[in-house]
Design a protein around this nucleic acid. Structure first.
Lengths: 106, 106
DNA sequence: TAGGAATATTGCTATATAACTATGTTTCGA
DNA sequence: TCGAAACATAGTTATATAGCAATATTCCTA
């Protein structure tokens, strides 16, 4: 006993195997530094809304939406809906858990 | 000064975004435990040759060869040629470096 | 309640990935 | 030196991924 088999989350690895999604994830580390102002919602409380990320990414809105969906399904970001705004934020706990698991299981 | 920007190696992330390659990489952690005997070459010294990995993976030889090429180009495994045998081994240093970088840069 | 704004979803096309079979290359041994 | 063994590469096909435009959905506001 003692050796708990920790499986690497392959869905997360696939989510990270993308320049666009890595960029988004890193931008979300410092919203104030990486994005412009946001009309509604506090960066550090609610998160960053899609249109703001879209401006920074220079991609179509559906493309950004799809990337965020993949990041969300992988559990790397959380989602909060306020009115018609969808705010995304890094899930630091999940990210840390993934990194720890990867460190031992890889 | 101080903050050295460490870029995540996206080639490694793409290499890891594959069940087959993750399996191979983990099998290589314990060759004696995961593979049968090897006619030539010491598991822990030279590494594991392609045909042995192929038997375990249950894939065609070219498929295994392609996966090993991707792992090798990403720098996750080293390659040693002895006669007509090509031995692959984990590059533990490179793997550790990648994990460290990912931990801070993600 | 009609309209507009913010996102998600759909449909489509182009490119990347993964598997196979067939073939090429290198090396060793008879 | 001829043949077989061990891998790599090439060619092909099927599936996955990424982007776009168009459309649907939801919610606020006038």
């Amino acid at each position: 006993m003692g050796d708990v088999e920790q499986a690497v989350d392959e869905e997360i690895l696939r989510a990270l195997a993308s320049t666009a999604r890595l960029d988004i994830l890193r931008w979300l580390k410092d919203p104030a530094g990486n994005f412009g102002r946001q009309e509604i919602g506090d960066f550090d409380v609610e998160g960053v809304c899609v249109s703001v990320i879209q401006d920074r990414a220079g991609m179509s809105q559906p493309a950004v939406s799809a990337h965020l969906k993949i990041l969300h399904q992988a559990g790397l970001v959380t989602r909060k809906k306020i009115g018609n705004w969808h705010f995304y934020r890094r899930d630091e706990l999940a990210i840390r858990r993934f990194l720890d698991t990867l460190s031992t299981a890889l």
